[in-house]
Amino acid sequence: MLIPVVDDDGAPFWEYAARGELRVQGCADCGELRFPPRPCCPHCRSFASEWRRVSGRGRVWSYVLPHPPLLPDYAEQAPYNVVLVELADAPRIRLVGNLVSEAGAGLDSVPVERIRIGARVQVVFTATALPQWVLERP
């Protein structure tokens, strides 16, 4: 089972994800959203931040099919997809995950021929709070 590596800046992301919420860090001064989380706003240099809930909707911006698997824990499911999703309500933020047929499904549960750049997706979370994506219209 894959478990995320949590650092101080990203800890709130994983706490919200464990509750089934997708939140991204935003600047409390200028309002810009940012990901990955970090202590300082890259736009205004403020150290004030907050975590804002986003819809979890997005679109597939890019994807790859890794061969051979890069991590041993993925070997049983190879080949599998890795998608880069552009968030609908924060288009400058892109999150990495896997496209699956439903929450909890295997990484190989969506045939590669069904993956399309621009496909609309919705976030779901694994039991260990990793974000994954399902097609909005399967």
Results as ranks from 00 to 15, higher is better:
V96Y: 09
R34A: 11
F125G: 01
R38A: 09
E21V: 09
D9V: 01
L84A: 15
D29N: 07
V110G: 04
P39D: 08
E15Q: 13
A11L: 11
G56Y: 10
R34D: 11
D9L: 02
D89L: 12
P36S: 05
E50D: 08
R94V: 09
L130D: 05
A18H: 03
E21C: 03
T126A: 04
V134W: 07
A17K: 06
E32P: 09
V64P: 06
E136R: 03
D8F: 13
P72A: 06
P91E: 04
E86H: 01
I115N: 05
V85A: 01
P131N: 03
G20V: 05
V5K: 11
L135G: 14
V6I: 15
L71P: 00
L135M: 12
D8M: 13
P36Q: 03
A48Y: 01
D7C: 08
G20D: 03
W133F: 12
P39T: 03
Q77L: 08
V60A: 00
P72N: 02
L99Y: 04
V6C: 03
Q122R: 15
A90I: 11
M1Q: 12
R137M: 07
I3H: 14
L95T: 00
R53A: 11
G118P: 02
R57F: 14
P131R: 04
P36M: 06
A18E: 05
R137H: 10
H67P: 04
C27W: 09
D8S: 15
P72V: 05
R19H: 08
P131E: 03
C27S: 07
G10N: 13
Y16F: 13
I117T: 07
G56L: 08
V112R: 15
C41R: 06
R52V: 09
